[in-house]
């Protein structure tokens, strides 16, 4: 199984990311212990130069990880034909117990990567690198995630057995089995759309307030997280149903398939990016008091909130369009 081009690409990304993370982690330890901008020592000068390399390398790796998340899902969907019982990515990920953990960890790496890139960008805005310690402490937090990703992904791909009968998405996302996926599927369409709408109003209000007052970014980040959770729930309980035009099919992965025009990407990509930017705004909002950032950080924060709001609007429009063009009638 491992001799498949997308799998080779994914393992290449994971291996390079782990190697970079290992090396950057060792460097981060040195920064956390000895970083002192006032020092004129040779070692400090070297460290300052090295930060440029680490930023560039780690930035490149994180960008590759973002692409790898897309590739992972795309590939899982495409491989469904190889497994008895699998119809979409759910079946492929269910072939062995490491599939879904690998996906969740990849999503965690995605969010960590975006937040770290945002932190890195903010750090470079100040002439005295005010966030260097925070940035490298965060990097140390990402290292185990990246390693876990490599281990889980390799275990998953090495243990793909085509003689295993896996379960299809229609088994996982039905209101009969007791687990989270089915709780989401069982939520009534009206209720889940209402919750999403309510969260959206809260998000818009907190976003506009943050733009006008220049503070309250933490609230905006919380609202973004809420919309993310409600958005995923709504995709499982209503939006996917509209796309399939079948009131019993709730799978959040089948919407990625070509039969449905890859519509899922129009929902997920803006939702994930907008959420990550919103969380990033909440994180950066904590550093508004840093003196060397006061000139340029507010502008960055504003831009992030605007882009994040734009992403959520795109997600909302995609969801509305899915409902509007569908031939399925759930209400009335």
């Amino acid at each position: 199984m491992i001799f498949r081009m997308p799998i080779l690409a994914l393992l290449l990304v994971a291996t390079l990311a782990a190697l970079t993370a290992l090396w950057s982690g060792a460097f981060a330890l040195g920064v956390l212990r000895h970083w002192d901008l006032t020092s004129m020592a040779r070692a400090q000068l070297r460290r300052e130069r090295m930060t440029e390399l680490v930023s560039t390398l780690f930035g490149a790796v994180m960008l590759a990880e973002l692409a790898a998340l897309l590739l992972f899902v795309f590939n899982a969907d495409r491989m469904a034909a190889l497994f008895v019982g699998a119809m979409c990515a759910v079946g492929t990920l269910n072939v062995n117990p490491w599939g879904f953990p690998a996906l969740y960890l990849k999503i965690a790496v995605f969010f960590a990567a975006v937040l770290w890139l945002i932190l890195d960008r903010a750090d470079r805005l100040g002439r005295d690198y005010p966030l260097t310690r925070v940035k490298y402490a965060a990097l140390l937090g990402i290292v185990p995630l990246v390693f876990g990703d490599l281990v889980l992904e390799t275990t998953y791909f090495l243990n793909l057995r085509t003689d295993v009968i896996t379960s299809c998405c229609s088994k996982l996302f039905t209101p009969n089995n007791p687990n989270l996926a089915n709780e989401m599927a069982a939520l009534g369409p009206g209720l889940s759309l209402g919750l999403l709408g309510g969260a959206g109003v809260l998000l818009a209000a907190s976003g506009i307030a943050a733009l006008i007052r220049g503070r309250g970014y933490a609230l905006y980040a919380a609202a973004a997280a809420l919309v993310f959770a409600m958005g995923i729930t709504a995709i499982v309980s209503v939006i996917s149903v509209y796309i399939y035009e079948n009131p019993n099919h709730h799978c959040p992965f089948c919407i990625l398939k070509p039969e449905y025009g890859h519509y899922g990407y129009a929902l997920y990509v803006p939702l994930f990016l907008a959420t990550a930017l919103g969380l990033g705004a909440g994180m950066l909002g904590q550093f508004r008091a840093v003196p060397s950032l006061q000139a340029r950080l507010p502008g960055l924060l504003r831009a992030q909130v605007i882009w994040s709001l734009g992403g959520f609007v795109a997600f909302g429009l995609a969801a509305l369009w899915a409902i509007a063009r569908s031939n399925l009638i759930l209400f009335g």
Binding site: M5, L8, A9, L12, V13, L57, A60, A68, L70
Partner: peptide, 20 residues
């Protein structure tokens, strides 16, 4: 899928080789 795979398989090694 093919284009993304191809992009990752070819550009990533190049970036890795030239950054340092």
């Amino acid at each position: 899928l093919q284009i993304l795979t191809l992009g990752l398989l070819t550009t990533l090694p190049y970036v890795a080789a030239t950054v340092v």
